[in-house]
Design a protein around this nucleic acid. Structure first.
Lengths: 182, 182
DNA sequence: AGGCCACTATTCACGGTGTGACTAGTATCG
DNA sequence: CGATACTAGTCACACCGTGAATAGTGGCCT
């Protein structure tokens, strides 16, 4: 399940859909619209814009100075618009492979022959997840929380819970395994 | 929730824990141990090994020819062993931010002012998820499936279900929104 | 008046990460 | 004896992100 990755280009494209923007602007708009999302660095935006320009998705409109240093304004090209609508309509096919970090760690721990380490890891990881879930639950019940924060918390909670259920069964299996050993 | 990323170095380190290996070997062992995982390209392994060597995590042991082209055998250094055990014991702190691809798409679709597209996307994404879930359910009930496949399917299913629940509420919200419009 | 800080806006060098094409040796099979 | 498949690795390249550096403007405090 890697269906959690958002390409920076598409993000920028989406933010440009409403009109011309310069890099600094895009960054602030991003932070405003996606407060709970993965942080986006300034440098990242400029680098992405340059790549997108090379690919013909955006155009540098103007270069002028308004109360401060020079700013370069960008707009979507027709091709960019097309790419955006395609992407927005495109269903994300959940990856045909499964990336489960916990399973990988446990498997590798067992491979090195250390069942104790595997079980220990699982127990501590479970504790960490439970703690994180308590945090999100607090966000949900906090009347100060914004709607988008509550929605993000909901999403996070259900995925943490999914992880947790996997860990419980794995733990049963691993401890069962070690107890069988003489 | 980006707790689904496995760094290639750690993976390689784990596979090297049982003894010396050369790149080609590592690739095959990976495919054997992690059949449901993200595919790992040969080139990726060699590149990773080189970086790890630079970082002092592995050593090139020997360079010899055995029934075929030259092969370079690698082994973990003491530092590599240490890094591995640290990593294996290290609890993954779920990211402090939430990456929700579906939410991002819907938000951007709404930003461009296209509620229809947003709702439409959600409906089709839901269908895709349901289809994928049927696939995994089939894997689970298939007596031919290996244990690791069943476990992977379990994990995938619960996460797909978590996504699905998020999409259902989002869909209610978006369609409610468009119906309010004149 | 002078100094400092905060904000705006961008650039640059660099490093990790992965991809696809290519080379090259050996074995096998018809 | 030629084609093919498997083994093993190299290389050039592109993407993506980071942190530091640069540079202009305005405001505030003393």
């Amino acid at each position: 399940m890697n269906s959690g990755l958002v390409s920076t280009s598409h993000l920028v494209l989406g933010l440009l859909a409403r009109g011309e923007r310069h890099g600094y602007d895009l960054k602030r708009e991003h932070d405003l619209r996606f407060p709970s999302a993965r942080p986006l660095a300034y440098g990242q935006i400029y680098a992405t814009l340059e790549r997108m320009q090379r690919q013909g998705l955006v155009d540098a409109v103007s270069r002028e100075r308004v109360d401060g240093p020079d700013r370069t304004t960008f707009r979507m090209t027709r091709q960019g618009r097309k790419e955006l609508t395609t992407w927005l309509a495109e269903v994300e096919t959940p990856a045909p492979f499964v990336t489960n970090l916990f399973a990988t760690k446990v498997t590798l721990a067992l491979l090195t022959g250390d069942e104790g380490a595997a079980a220990d890891y699982l127990r501590r990881q479970r504790q960490a997840h439970l703690a994180r879930m308590r945090d999100y639950t607090r966000v949900k019940t906090d009347p100060e929380s914004s709607l988008s924060q509550v929605l993000a918390a909901d999403y996070a909670l259900s995925h943490l819970d999914a992880d947790l259920r996997w860990m419980e069964t794995a733990l049963d299996r691993v401890t069962g395994l070690t107890e069988e050993m003489p």
